[in-house]
Design a protein around this nucleic acid. Structure first.
Length: 433
RNA sequence: GUGGGUGUAGCUCAGCUGGUAGAGCACCGCCUUGUGGUGGCGGUGGUCGCGGGUUCGAGUCCCGUCACUCACCCCA
């Protein structure tokens, strides 16, 4: 009965309009900051995708139906936009100007079990800045700012950008005499799910002593909305060159991004990011009241985004899970069509009059459609109402706001609806109820 | 991949210990022969997820299967 494929969402027009407006906003924000757009192919050679390791089971392999069933697949759908981008940078390094900043919004695929906010096919919006050999640190600040601004402009619950720095954690652990900082990081990264007591046990199992575990947990407890985390870390009395470097970096990012209105920016030393390739700044993002969705937007600095025989390409970037971001929204637009005006048709013989009126409105960028049939006017009004079209134009020169019932004489070459009626608007959950 | 829950109309659901399928909403028409939203009357619409079994008879019981869903894992 239900042909719905779990994890592969499809929207109704009313919902798609909401998504579309979110995407438009993101693009506008990214381009306002000078990011250029790139689109990469949907498939990559399997070995390129698996380079990052671990995630192999989530990758969808692709091969021709006619291929020999015994033959292993060579291609796979990309499961993020970072790896394809790294490949693209290498391939086009000779033609790109560095530092290169790009935005990219595309579908990605992951073979996970779906649940709320987790999809098998979903849209990611990425920004990355990549350079050849050296990427100045201020770009870490910029990427955080741009994404913070993008989030601030959306009608979603308040977002908290949680920023940390791998160098702090690694330096702190090294300063404590921990042999395998990465293993500790992966344990600490689970702090939001696993109680601190259990984390302590796990740390002790790794061969740390109680005072070490104590201070590691104390570090992870530090969350501040300003640069005061620096003093708090220093008060723990651990010293290491890498730690000092990380503290200075994180302070810069927090200071640089914290004045964006509408989002909260925190230095959050719980954030470690399980995965390997991050080398400095790391980001995660939660939505207030929707923490159970997990991070909607993550990323960080990778000193070795890509590498060829001649050069290394360091990068810093952040990925927004657009599909997940949409979950808290009511996903309803004020109407299911772009039309702001429906021009009624008096009789089929005079349809051309209506067409002319519609043309005059469209000429001035007012989205307009003409009634499908010369039905009774009541029917034509209903047609508009069902779709949420706010205005019905009765030829030759009368326009009615069908929400208020107010009807005025008007000239199609000069009449304009209020700005808020020109395009569909996103309704919040409150507005719906 | 592991474990739990659920599959009856477009949607939300009812259907008692097995007796040949219902409600509300939505949709269409009429009351209303050219300006809607309320009201009244009427109507369309279901291989009860799929396959097998038990039975005179299965939406209802049994087995299998698929799908959806929640949690774990992991991540946007």
């Amino acid at each position: 009965m239900s042909k719905k494929l779990s994890g592969f969402p499809e929207f109704l027009p009313r919902e798609r309009i909401v998504e579309q407006q979110v995407l438009d906003h993101l693009r506008r924000t990214f381009e306002l900051h000078g990011f250029a757009n790139v689109e990469t192919r949907a498939v990559e050679p399997l070995d390129v995708l698996l380079r990052k390791g671990e995630i192999d089971k989530e990758v969808y392999a692709v091969k021709r139906l006619a291929a020999d069933p015994a033959e292993p697949a060579e291609l796979a759908l990309h499961y993020d936009l970072t790896v394809p981008f790294a490949r693209y940078v290498l391939e086009n390094a000779g033609k790109l100007e560095f530092p290169f900043r790009r935005w990219q919004i595309q579908k990605v695929w992951r073979g996970e079990r779906p649940q709320q906010g987790r999809f098998r096919e979903f849209t990611q919006a990425d920004i990355d800045i990549v350079a050849r050999d050296v990427l100045p640190f201020h770009f870490d600040v910029e990427v955080a700012r741009v994404m913070a601004e993008a989030l601030a402009g959306l009608p979603i619950p308040r977002a908290t950008l949680q920023i940390s720095n791998r160098k702090i954690l690694e330096g702190f652990y090294l300063g404590l005499g921990v042999a395998d900082p990465t293993a500790v990081m992966q344990v600490v990264d689970k702090l939001d799910k696993v109680p601190a007591e259990r984390i302590r046990e796990l740390l002790l199992e790794q061969g740390l002593d109680a005072p070490q575990a104590e201070r590691i947990l104390a570090l992870a407890e530090i969350v501040t909305t300003d640069t005061s985390f620096v003093q708090r870390v220093e008060a723990l009395g651990v010293e290491h060159e890498l730690l000092a470097e990380g503290l200075a970096e994180l302070a810069q990012v927090v200071k640089g991004a914290s004045d964006v209105d509408g989002v909260t920016v925190t230095a959050d030393l719980r954030i470690a990011r399980g995965l390997d390739y991050y080398t400095g700044t790391v980001f995660e993002t939660r939505l207030e009241g929707w923490e159970h969705l997990g991070s909607i937007c993550s990323g960080g600095r990778y000193d070795e985004l890509a590498k060829d025989r001649r050069s290394t390409y360091p990068g810093v970037g952040i990925s927004l899970g657009v599909s997940r971001l949409l979950v808290p929204l009511a996903l309803a637009a004020s109407r299911s069509v772009p039309s702001a005006v429906l021009v009624a048709v008096d009789a089929e013989e005079s349809r051309s009059i209506s067409d002319t009126i519609a043309g005059a409105l469209r000429y001035r960028d007012i989205p307009t459609e003409v009634a499908p049939a010369a039905a009774k006017f009541g029917k034509q009004i209903q047609y508009a109402e069902k779709r949420g079209i706010p205005y019905v134009w009765f030829p030759p020169s009368s326009v009615k706001d069908i929400r208020s019932g107010e009807q005025v004489d008007a000239d199609p070459t000069t009449w304009t609806p209020p700005l808020e009626d020109l395009t569909p608007t996103i309704l919040t959950k409150e507005q719906l109820s």
